[in-house]
Write a protein that binds this DNA or RNA. Sequence first.
DNA 1: TTGTGTTTTATTGCCTCC
DNA 2: GGAGGCAATAAAACACAA
Length: 317
Amino acid sequence: MASGRVNLAAMLQNQRVPCSSQPLDALFLSASSPSFLGSRSMLSFEDVRAGKRPDNPFFCQFDHDENGDEDLDEYFHQPEKKRRLTADQVQFLERNFEVENKLEPERKVQLAKDLGLQPRQVAIWFQNRRARWKTKQLEKDFGALQASYNSLKAEYENLLKEKDELKTEVILLTDKLLVKEKERGNLEVSNTDTLSQELPQVVVADSVSEGEVSKVSLVVCKQEDLSSTKSDVFDSDSPHYADGGHSALPEPGDSSYVFEADQSDVSQDEEDNFSKSLLPPSYIFPKLEDVDYPDPPTNPCSFGFPVEDHAFWSWSY
DNA sequence: TTGTGTTTTATTGCCTCC
DNA sequence: GGAGGCAATAAAACACAA
């Protein structure tokens, strides 16, 4: 690129040419001055700040191994050689960078004076330093984001695991429930004759015909049996839904069908199964991923609905 | 010593702001 | 339009293993 091009201005401006208004004079004075002892004996910039600056700021251009006529001669015969800043200079610049990573013109000039560099060099140093800082910052941000991502991923996987466990538990409990219900259903079938007498008295809403009362009676619970779970809910012929099917329910069109409110998010397919099911919609298990589980019903017969919401019927003992 | 990778210094071109 | 910042890049200086 163009850096190979001879840049006369830069050469003249560059600190490798002594950094004073009179470069050559400064060089010779400094190089031959007894006070010039190389960077090892160079005044620290703390000292510089304390006012112990040498009269001529040219104290930063030669390392300890670079004084002497031979070096000077070599120096001037080199086309344009890059020279690194001394450790002290870099340290000083670093401190200033920490204070403020942008450089106002006055500050630039002052720093250049303090360091014995060209203002342009100070500006370039700050520019490069900002670039390095930005790279580091990006790496840091990347690390933080990666950590955050890993953490979220772990959390997500834990939740998935937990979900699977809950799913298994639900299936297990449902199986138990069905077995229990089946046993109970068999018992009730054998007592069919007395069943109607034992059923609680139900006041059926106007819309429910007398012939449908028996259907309703399958759905309702006896208050004293509430603690025995939802056993009264299920028909003894309810299909096992571990395979994805659902237990039977009264036909939605049937006036005894009292759970319409919860169908909003049930698909048509699910509705079809649903219509054959005795389970209320709250007990239908679509893909668990798609479900927001309602709070557990306080009353096992309410299936998530407040009992008083069902104006169709009420209990009387 | 030398080859190679990394760091540092410096340039260039483009962009934005005043 | 000039000054200054930034990204991309070159190239010297440096570090280090073989």
